[in-house]
């Protein structure tokens, strides 16, 4: 049975725009023009337990919006979404207790206190039994090589170090599913490789289902057997990496990045 199921999910944002030109400020106080931006235009897919799926698409395609809907923190306008038998935004608390989320551009660590304090807080937040927590904690500290970082405030960590801590923070409560929204953004080559190795290992060892958005095609090639491509809020491709390459065989011999760029262009994204 599939663990994650989305059917025809839609989300439109209202964007308020201030009028331009003379007296704009004054007029803006009374009237604002509203523009509707369709972020998700009927997205459907299913993901099975233990899968590691890559989710790609150009900027503004709707990747983050999809992740937010699946995390239960954004209510879509229409469509259905069931994850492990729950509708995320309707049963937010039990749902989020079983998932982990990493937003590459945000931090879940407390900025000015040692990383280990953030970790102990998470133990209480997820109500993890102490023995189980300690075991998981030591495991993650070891595999992510966090030993030297635990006493450092998050503010003083380099991006690569922080991202390793973020991963640990998202996995301390042993979630069934992990959503990663651009986790490799801004990382150097060494950190990227370490992160990929860790994700691959973690997926294999503890069977965590992972969905990973990225702009880095190497991430996808290294990690995912399945890739979904989204553009303008629609799912354009869902299948193996080879299939994607085959479909764009005309570009054969070219770098995968160029294949993707060609694809985006062809679809006029």
């Amino acid at each position: 049975m599939s663990q994650i199921e989305l059917r025809n999910i839609r989300k439109t944002f209202k964007v308020y725009e201030r009028p331009e030109g003379k007296w704009a400020l004054l007029r803006g106080a009374f009237s604002r023009t509203v523009r509707a931006v369709t972020a998700l235009d009927g997205i459907s897919f299913t993901i099975n337990e233990g899968e590691l799926v890559g989710y790609i698409g150009p900027n503004g395609a709707g990747k983050s919006t999809t992740v937010k809907v699946m995390s239960g923190i954004l209510t879509p306008d229409g469509g259905e979404c069931v994850i492990s038998g729950r509708v995320p935004w309707k049963e937010r608390k039990p749902h989020v207790a079983r998932i982990g989320v990493v937003f590459g551009q945000r931090s879940q660590l407390w900025w000015d206190v040692p990383v280990s304090d953030s970790f102990s807080l998470l133990r209480d937040v997820y109500n993890v039994p102490p023995g189980q927590f300690q075991k998981r904690h030591d495991e993650l500290v070891e595999t992510l090589d966090l030993g030297g970082l635990l006493k450092t405030p998050a503010r003083q960590l380099s991006l690569g170090q922080r991202m390793r801590c973020e991963l640990a923070a998202a996995l301390l409560h042993s979630p069934d599913i992990l959503f990663l929204d651009e986790p490799t953004i801004g990382l150097d080559a060494v950190s990227k490789l370490a992160l990929r190795a860790f994700l691959r290992e973690e997926n294999k060892k503890s069977g965590v289902t992972m969905l990973l958005t990225t702009h880095d095609m190497d991430d996808i090639e290294a990690l995912c057997s399945r890739v979904m491509v989204i553009g303008r809020g629609r799912l354009l491709y869902d299948g193996g990496m080879e299939g994607l390459k085959e479909r764009y065989a005309a570009y054969e011999g070219q770098d995968i990045d160029e294949v993707i760029a060609a694809m985006y262009e062809e679809l006029a994204l």
């Binding site: 995390s71 239960g72 937010r92 989020v96 989320v101 937003f103 945000r106 879940q108 937040v125």
Partner: peptide
Amino acid sequence: NGDVGVELCRPLD
């Protein structure tokens, strides 16, 4: 800035 999203990912009130 939207970091409230991170807080909402916790099983807390």
